[in-house]
């Protein structure tokens, strides 16, 4: 997914750079002041195309937002997740903030898991990476709030949690994992 976004970006950037190079060359090679014919009309078409393309993107992507993921299903598993500087604690049970304790988490493929993510101190990020270290899903861990992230893991294997919000000098060592069988 990320790679296709990169390709999209590179293609669009390539087109943009090409257009500007052509515009530049047209200036260098032009006879004095030929100018653009009917620029207002071209401008109108350009904006219309932009509106249509962006509008399409908007209506296609909005329903794919994480807030609507599996909203009509009943989760099979709840994983309580508490983050604090600089550890993630995950548990099948609720976590007591006075004595936070985590446990090893094993999930099954294709079962709907709901991660209930919060923080004990500062804002952290809860980023789920697969064993190839590709980011598959994320939410923020904000103190005072619980974010519910629903996800189905289609591939078995080891998954890593990395912190995706800067949380202090141990931010880069904040890491945890769980298994999907």
């Amino acid at each position: 997914m990320q790679q296709s976004l990169l390709s999209l970006f590179l293609i669009l950037s390539g087109i943009i750079i090409l257009v500007f190079i052509l515009v530049y060359l047209s200036s260098i090679q032009s006879q004095p002041q030929q100018g653009m014919k009917n620029p207002l009309q071209k401008r109108f078409w350009f904006i219309t195309i932009m509106v249509v393309v962006l509008g399409m993107f908007f209506f296609i992507t909005i329903p794919k937002s994480p807030y609507y993921l599996y909203a009509n299903e009943q989760p099979a598993r709840i994983v309580h997740t508490v983050s604090s500087q600089f550890v993630f604690l995950m548990s099948n049970q609720d976590i007591d903030p006075a004595q936070p304790m985590g446990e090893n988490i094993e999930l099954n493929t294709n079962e709907l898991v709901e991660f209930r993510v919060t923080s004990l101190d500062v804002t952290h990020g809860f980023g789920i990476y697969n064993d190839k270290y590709e980011l598959v899903a994320q939410t923020q861990a904000m103190p005072g709030y619980v974010n519910k992230l629903r996800w189905k893991f289609s591939e078995p294997g080891k998954y890593y949690i990395l912190c995706l919000e800067y949380c202090g000098s141990g931010h880069q060592v904040m890491k945890s994992f769980f298994n999907v069988k």
Binding site: V19, Y24, S27, F46
Partner: peptide, 25 residues
């Protein structure tokens, strides 16, 4: 965020292109 790109590209960037396109500057 989407809408903010419209006036920028359709008006500002386009205006610069109009200034340059096939004009000896």
């Amino acid at each position: 965020s989407y809408l903010a790109s419209l006036p920028s590209s359709g008006v500002t960037v386009f205006s610069i292109i109009v200034v340059v396109f096939r004009n000896k500057i």
